[in-house]
């Protein structure tokens, strides 16, 4: 049985700044089942990090605010619960790890204290119990000599170690959902693979669902069950991992795939997508990807396409497919638009 752990409906998180309203997350829907890993992929500025902070209830307010939508976690709508209720969920049922393990750990407390704190506040454990659990957790994330490490400060650890500590901290209370925002971006390539493997192992061991946020499709290739590609606050493509790599639908996804270096093919340089994400308050009318799209058509400039279902687990937001469909159903003659 696949009851959803998390269901997000039409989530809109806007930032109200002096320069205008920034639609960081603009009507996103998603579902996540228990034990599943969902990859959210997009460039910086695509709204993927704001997505995760929205789920955590950590959108800085002001200027940010969730203006519409629902975040249903188990049987609760997180947008409606009280602050203290939210606090009991954070770090306990939903946890998060961040991109910069260096700056995400408090420099003036030992790592032991920073993990023990979680046990103290969520499970009310005594100092001795919390310490024991912390050591256990550090062992689980592959930190050697945890008895000694708990007395160390973040600046005494390497980047990879720090991220392991962050993972231990996030998984301390055995949460049902772990949100990992670019967990490997700041790390060396070899360490990246280790951390990803660790997260995948722990996911199976602890039966945790994961939302893995990254700008690099390569990172989610092995671990994610499903992938969402975000651009300018909107979902551009939603698909299972296999299909997306085999047959990317959205032009943006194609671009992202092309920008992964491949071992088997010699490339002179990465064929990155030209241009950058438009700063969200001056999104063009029409499709937000239109200015950078190599398949751009007249209609793309005028009107933004809706997200449509192509197959069971594949959805895409692009006129390319809508045109084909409408055209198949309505007009059999004009093959060339």
């Amino acid at each position: 049985m696949t009851k959803e752990l998390l269901e997000i409906k039409n989530l809109k998180t806007y930032f109200f700044t002096d320069e205008g309203t920034v639609r960081a997350v603009d009507g996103v829907d998603l579902e996540l089942n228990k034990g599943e890993t969902l990859g959210i992929v997009g460039e910086s500025g695509s709204g993927k990090s704001m997505m995760s902070l929205s789920i955590m209830g950590l959108i800085p307010n002001p200027p940010g605010k969730i203006v519409d939508g629902q975040i249903n976690f188990k049987d609760k709508n997180l947008c409606k619960i009280s602050k203290s209720e939210y606090r009991r969920i954070r770090g306990n049922e939903i946890s998060m790890i961040f991109q910069e393990p260096m700056t995400s750990l408090n420099p003036v407390f030992t790592i032991g204290k920073q993990i023990m704190e979680v046990y103290k506040h969520h499970q009310g454990l005594s100092k001795a119990e919390a310490k024991e659990k912390t050591i256990e957790m550090l062992k689980l994330v592959g930190i050697s000599m945890p008895e000694r490490r708990i007395h160390e400060y973040p600046n005494q650890l390497s980047g990879g170690m720090r991220q392991r500590v962050m993972i231990a901290m996030a998984l301390a209370c055995n949460p049902e959902l772990l949100i990992a925002d670019e967990p490997t971006t700041a790390l060396d390539v070899t360490i990246q693979a280790q951390i990803l493997k660790l997260m995948d192992d722990l996911k199976h061991k602890l039966n945790t669902s994961i939302i893995l946020i990254t700008h690099n499709l390569g990172v989610v290739a092995q671990t994610a069950d499903k992938i969402i590609v975000m651009y300018a606050g909107k979902v551009m493509e939603y698909s299972d991992t296999k299909s997306i790599f085999k047959n990317p639908k959205h032009p943006y996804t194609e671009g992202l795939l092309d920008s992964i270096p491949k071992i088997d093919k010699p490339v002179d340089r990465l064929s990155a997508i030209p241009g950058t994400v438009p700063s969200s308050n001056d999104f063009p009318t029409g499709c937000s990807f239109y200015p950078r799209c190599k398949y751009a058509m007249e209609i793309c400039k005028e009107k933004g396409p809706d997200l449509i279902k192509l197959e069971d687990d594949v959805q895409v937001r692009c006129w390319k497919y809508i045109e084909e469909k409408t055209f198949v159903s309505k007009d059999h003659h004009s093959e060339k638009v």
Binding site: M56, L58, R87, R88, I89, R90, G91, N92, S95, M96, F98, E100, T103, S104, L105, N106, P107, E117, V118, H121, H122, M166, M169
Partner: peptide, 17 residues
């Protein structure tokens, strides 16, 4: 404004802590 304050909040610590 620091990241570790966000982490502390993400851990579900009370605001006064």
């Amino acid at each position: 404004r620091q990241d570790y304050i966000r982490t502390a909040r993400a851990k579900g610590l009370p605001e006064r802590v």
